[in-house]
Amino acid sequence: MPIAKVNDINMYYEIQGEGEPLIFIPGLGTEISSAGLFTAKLAKKYGVIIFDNRGTGRTDKPDAHYSIEMMAEDTVRLMDKLKIEKAHFMGGSMGACILQVIAAKYPERVNSMVLYLATPRFSDALKNAMMPFLKPQKVEEGKTNQMHPLFMQKYPPTEGSLSRQLEANMKFDGRDLIGQIKAPTLIINATKDRFIPIESTEELAEVIPHAKVILVDGDHLFPMTKSELLIKPAIVFLEEMDLKY
């Protein structure tokens, strides 16, 4: 089983396909198998490196504070272990937050990046909208209802590890970082996303130099329900970037 010792955790990863490296960073609470819909298509053209973030899947779930910056460091240290100096990147939702930090702090490691369901920060209104959606519902004293899709994955997070990832998400504010991003960037967000309003997309796009923005007709689940709206423009963009390197 492909496990790398990264910082203070054992990190599970997979490499799918061959070609230029493309590092795919999953979102909140999701593990590798949940991203198979995307990575199988991307692996036809790229060597896709995907992993379980700390707190998810087969990666360790330490009972300690998590942060987006910490998960960005995990990703870069995994690159070091795999001897990947530079790569294309793709990240959604929490993965897009992690990717913003990597691109700002380690510009030499990023050829280009695709951000989707992306925001530079989580407003109070956004936090209030997300919390009931993600928090397990109490059904009676001392018990919880774990029928949320995140808990129904093959390798689900624990309630504790999901809570720690969620806290990292809620505390993230990348506004001081994104002005440092130099990598060519494509942002794919949705017009009906209750968690990522259009204003967040505009805030992100205004600060990242020359970022290209695509708004699709869908909600926060469009990558799952309308995956071609994500994969097709992402591949076109990445192929354009390949011509530059």
Rank of each mutant, 00 (worst) to 15 (best):
P156G: 12
S227Q: 06
T144M: 12
Q16K: 10
V48K: 00
I187W: 08
Q180F: 07
K61E: 09
A211Q: 12
I188Q: 08
M11S: 08
I198G: 00
H65A: 07
K83R: 11
P157N: 09
T144A: 10
K41G: 04
H65Q: 10
F195A: 06
L22M: 05
L42C: 01
K143H: 13
L134R: 04
T201F: 08
H148W: 05
E31S: 15
I98A: 01
A234L: 09
M70R: 06
A104Y: 06
A4C: 13
T144D: 08
I84M: 09
M1D: 15
F38Q: 11
E206A: 15
M11I: 14
E18Y: 09
P223E: 00
G92C: 04
I68Q: 02
K61A: 13
K212Y: 02
P136N: 01
I231Q: 06
A4V: 11
E31D: 15
A104R: 01
D242H: 13
D193A: 04
E73I: 04
G57N: 10
T30A: 14
I208V: 15
Q137D: 02
L37A: 05
A211M: 13
D242A: 14
I178A: 07
V213L: 14
R109L: 02
L150C: 11
L82F: 08
E159W: 01
A104G: 06
M1A: 15
G92H: 00
E85M: 02
S163N: 12
D60M: 05
L238R: 11
I178P: 09
Y155S: 14
E140N: 10
A211P: 10
T75C: 10
F237I: 10
R164T: 05
M170R: 05
K143S: 13
I68C: 03
K182E: 11
L215R: 13
E108V: 04
P197A: 14
F24I: 09
F133G: 05
P107W: 03
G19T: 07
I98F: 01
D176L: 04
E108C: 00
D74Q: 02
M70V: 01
D52P: 07
T39C: 06
N145W: 11
T75I: 01
N53K: 06
E159D: 14
M1Q: 14
G47E: 11
K244T: 11
D60I: 04
G218Q: 02
L230R: 03
I181G: 02
A40W: 03
P120M: 11
L28R: 00
K127W: 00
G57A: 10
T30E: 13
K135T: 14
K5F: 07
I187G: 09
M70Q: 06
G27Y: 09
L162H: 11
P26E: 07
A129I: 03
P156V: 13
P223G: 06
E73H: 06
H88R: 06
L134Y: 12
T56H: 10
R175S: 13
Y12L: 00
I50A: 02
D173V: 04
L134D: 03
